[in-house]
Amino acid sequence: MVQHTPPRKTLRIGASAKKLDIGVSTVWLKINTEPDFPRPFKLGPRTTVFFEDELDAYLERCAAKSRQADAQKIIAQSPHVIDLCVQAKPVPDPADSCATMPSFPEAPKR
């Protein structure tokens, strides 16, 4: 029994840019400057395409890196947040607020 793999879907540069939510010129910039950016290939002299699943994998890698960086920022800021909580003064009990309010002189009688 022969198993057939489904054909991989391709996207042209404009559709790839739209999928990544960036401009076409930014796609070309990433092709030329980012080693981990998916490599396009030529179907003809004027037709360049990407495999869509490679773009999906790139998006997943970007999301994972971003989430990891966000988590590290939160962890790095945690000691400061804990310090602020420890240094914070307790909120006075509303029932005792009248006892701690300053007294004002009585208004003159007319």
Rank of each mutant, 00 (worst) to 15 (best):
G14K: 13
F37Y: 05
I13V: 13
V91C: 04
P108N: 09
D70L: 12
P40H: 01
D83L: 02
I31A: 03
A88V: 05
E54G: 02
G44R: 05
V49K: 00
A64W: 10
H80T: 03
D70K: 15
F41R: 00
S66P: 03
A69W: 12
V24H: 15
A17G: 02
V86Q: 05
Q77P: 00
Q72V: 09
S103Q: 12
K30A: 08
R110D: 11
I82W: 09
Q68G: 10
Q72G: 08
Q68A: 13
K9H: 07
H4V: 14
K19V: 03
I75Q: 14
A17I: 06
K89P: 01
L29R: 15
D93H: 06
T100V: 15
E54F: 07
P40S: 07
C62F: 04
G44W: 02
Q68D: 08
F41W: 01
S97W: 10
T33M: 02
L84H: 14
D70R: 11
D36C: 11
I31P: 05
V49E: 00
P102G: 08
A15D: 14
P40Y: 07
C62E: 03
F41G: 01
A71F: 13
E52G: 01
T33K: 07
Q72R: 15
K9Y: 01
V86A: 11
R61Q: 06
A76V: 07
S103K: 15
L29P: 02
G44Q: 11
M101K: 11
S16A: 10
K30G: 00
E52C: 00
R39Q: 07
P105L: 10
K42A: 06
L11F: 02
A69F: 13
I82H: 10
L11K: 04
P90R: 01
Y58V: 03
R46K: 13
A76P: 04
D93L: 09
Q72M: 13
I31S: 03
P108K: 07
Q72D: 11
L11Y: 01
L55I: 13
I82R: 10
P6M: 07
E52R: 03
R39T: 02
E54K: 00
E54T: 02
P92V: 10
T100M: 04
T26N: 14
P94H: 01
P79Y: 06
D83G: 05
Q77L: 14
K65D: 03
D56H: 09
A99W: 15
P40V: 07
C85H: 06
L55G: 02
Q3A: 08
F50V: 01
T5L: 13
P7H: 03
F51E: 02
E60V: 07
V91N: 03
